[in-house]
């Protein structure tokens, strides 16, 4: 900016809007702003309704889940079984297949004995 205060740009193109335009612009803006506000109010209402329904449904679901977890308590042992199996706590035999065959042999021998008897 120049050192002194004189600035003739400030004098340029200072038009005055007509009263008609002022009124029209204000009405148009207010009308549109009100319409937008009304739209968002309706949207807000829908969203709050949706959340009411959603929260209600979530509560119901929560109750169902509690119920289900009561029922599924018995199934809870399955992870323990898998864990034990991983640790090898169930079976310490080095060659399970051979043992299985032995067991089968023993069973068949027992059956034979029963038949003879």
């Amino acid at each position: 900016m120049a050192d002194n205060d004189k600035n003739n740009f400030k004098e340029l193109e200072n038009f005055e809007a007509s009263e008609k335009l002022k009124k029209k612009s204000l009405q148009a803006t207010e009308g549109n702003v009100s319409a937008v506000k009304a739209f968002f109010n309706v949207l807000d209402l829908y969203i709050s309704k949706f959340f009411d329904v959603f929260i209600h449904a979530a509560k119901d679901e929560g109750q169902h889940q509690n119920h289900r977890s009561d029922l599924s308590l018995g199934i809870g042992i399955i992870p323990n079984v898998i864990e034990k199996d991983k640790k090898g706590e169930f079976d310490n035999d080095e060659n399970p297949d051979e043992n299985e065959e032995d067991n089968l042999d023993n069973l068949s021998k027992e059956d034979d004995k029963k038949d003879i008897d």
Binding site: M1, A2, D3, K6, N7, N8, F9, E11, L12
Partner: peptide
């Protein structure tokens, strides 16, 4: 700037 800003506004 001074030269430009001081041009008479109608001429500007």
């Amino acid at each position: 700037d001074k030269v430009l800003l001081e041009i008479e506004f109608q001429k500007l």
